[in-house]
């Protein structure tokens, strides 16, 4: 599974960093999302799916092809 983020739309609510801390971090200056792994590490798929579902600004996109 691959994941993309549109950090420009991010409102820094922090939900992704809360539910999938190994995949998402937050910028120290403005709290916006930092993607740590474009290819989701094995075992973290459910967390990343949840992060995408609860992201309030629709910033996280999943891509299953090629995964």
């Amino acid at each position: 599974m691959r994941v993309r983020v549109d950090a420009g739309k991010c409102v820094g609510a922090g939900s992704c960093a809360l539910v999938a801390p190994d995949v998402f971090d937050q910028d120290d200056d403005d709290g916006t999302v930092i993607l740590l792994h474009e290819a989701v590490p094995a075992g973290h798929e459910d967390q990343v799916r949840e992060a995408a579902a609860i992201c309030p600004a629709g910033v996280i996109a999943l891509n299953h092809t090629g995964g």
């Binding site: 409102v11 820094g12 922090g14 801390p21 937050q26 120290d28 403005d30 709290g31």
Partner: peptide, 17 residues
């Protein structure tokens, strides 16, 4: 909205908390 909100977001990140 985003312009002003981003001035405060760093205070409420998961790590700041």
């Amino acid at each position: 909205h985003d312009h002003y909100r981003k001035m405060l977001t760093r205070e409420f990140t998961v790590k700041a908390v």
